[in-house]
Design a protein around this nucleic acid. Sequence first.
DNA 1: TGAACATTTGAAGACATATTTGATTATAGT
DNA 2: ACTATAATCAAATATGTCTTCAAATGTTCA
Lengths: 107, 107
Amino acid sequence: MTRVLLDEERAAELAEIFRLLGDANRLRIAVACLDQPLCVSDIAQQVGLSASLVSHHLRLLRAARFVRAHKEGKQVFYVSADEQARCVIKDMVSHVGAHRDATDDEG
Amino acid sequence: MTRVLLDEERAAELAEIFRLLGDANRLRIAVACLDQPLCVSDIAQQVGLSASLVSHHLRLLRAARFVRAHKEGKQVFYVSADEQARCVIKDMVSHVGAHRDATDDEG
DNA sequence: TGAACATTTGAAGACATATTTGATTATAGT
DNA sequence: ACTATAATCAAATATGTCTTCAAATGTTCA
């Protein structure tokens, strides 16, 4: 049997991650950046939110190292920070039984 | 390549789960109930919170079917609802790299 | 320099949530 | 019936968060 231990400090860390993904808009933004870098306005259009609001959420996601950003001219592209960030989301999505799509050529 | 798709409705569902675990106290309560049923006062003592507050959080966890309850005399015991609920937490904990303990004989 | 675009920032408002406190219900034992 | 314990509930406070809006920053191009 495997017991999960969780002291106060670790609980706070873990809860912080959960809390961050606990907003539907922010979660959709995080998911949008899973597979390829997207600029703010593209994300905004994809999730149907204002660029300002998306930027606000991206700042939080970046602060928690869920996404990283790089600049190209006027635009700033955001993408999942690393494989662990992707795993956390993908595993959870599959846990809850969301749809997956094996296609590669449609976006 | 596997793309994760997330429509608005599904994002809201998933975010709801994340949000629920996004509070450190509530997360610790959920973790405490992972392996064995515990009554409210035991949980309260274990996490260092008032019984009232623990009860409050347990109500939310139960509403989301993260835990289930059964009564024994004056006490109400809470335990993780099912294997999926346990997986969601344990996977996340391991993702973040929390301690695990393989012992069986200490409580 | 000036205009147009992309993004960020700060402040304000609306809204939701966590926590405390005291009262209330339910159960067991005397 | 009375007491003690366990848990829940309701109201109130405090705290935090999401969102919007307007202004500001930085970039490209003419």
